[in-house]
Design a protein around this nucleic acid. Sequence first.
DNA 1: GCGACAG
DNA 2: ATCTTGTCGC
Length: 264
Amino acid sequence: MVMERKSKLQSSPSTSSSDHVPHKWLEAQDLLKKKLVTEDDYTWKLGETEEGYEVESLKYIGGVDISFSKDDPSVACGTLVVLDFKTLDVVYEDSSIVKIDVPYIPGFLGFREAPIFLKLLEKMQNGSHPFYPQLLMIDGNGILHPRGFGSACHLGVLANLPTIGVGKNLHHVDGLTNAKVRELLEAEEKFSIDFVSLIGDSGNTLGVALHSSKGSLKPIFISVGHRVSLPCALQIVKRTCNYRVPEPIRQADIRSRDYLRKHH
DNA sequence: GCGACAG
DNA sequence: ATCTTGTCGC
């Protein structure tokens, strides 16, 4: 049997000496990945239920984001918002200024951002808050990731919540390129299809690229985070897109930047 | 060896 | 992520 070896770690953009952190992170990702669920695993329903009072419907969708200070890159603001799925009104908002020492390394975003979001979620009394989200959207990828475990999976597993990963840029993985995606989308456009499956060289479907708004030619990249299937994730994202970026993430982004500006 | 590399 | 002005258009 042939052992396969991967060792394409780059030098850290921040820390001085070569840091051994990614080695432990690789193991941690591998461990967390064993808990990953990539199929639908929830009790609520999506659509309008006709004989509905017996069925819990999806009502509260969370969105998270982090903004960073231009002066001090270690100062950031993490924000959690919860929106009413039907009206897309923000029904809950919480922000927190934090100091982040964990560096950003492509492929390890979860280690940098998830801890902040977990604290914000814990403040909602672990589910006892009436608006505690039934699902979370993360600006970062799910299984569209070098090892199939992006930040959306990371947060989903640790919070034990259904999550959807939404990337604004393609993470080049498994042979996927922007040129290839553009080509596929253009082909589908002729049939009025606004999305395309992202199938890597391995043959695996890692996510979808979606033209989420008419005002932008640039797609967003949706992938399964945790406990939500890709078709379901696509439906949910589509329903929350007033603009290119789905509203839960967009609101978290806007409000975190606002909060940081006012409190720093 | 050189690029590419979510936020 | 952040640095950055105006501009065209609904």
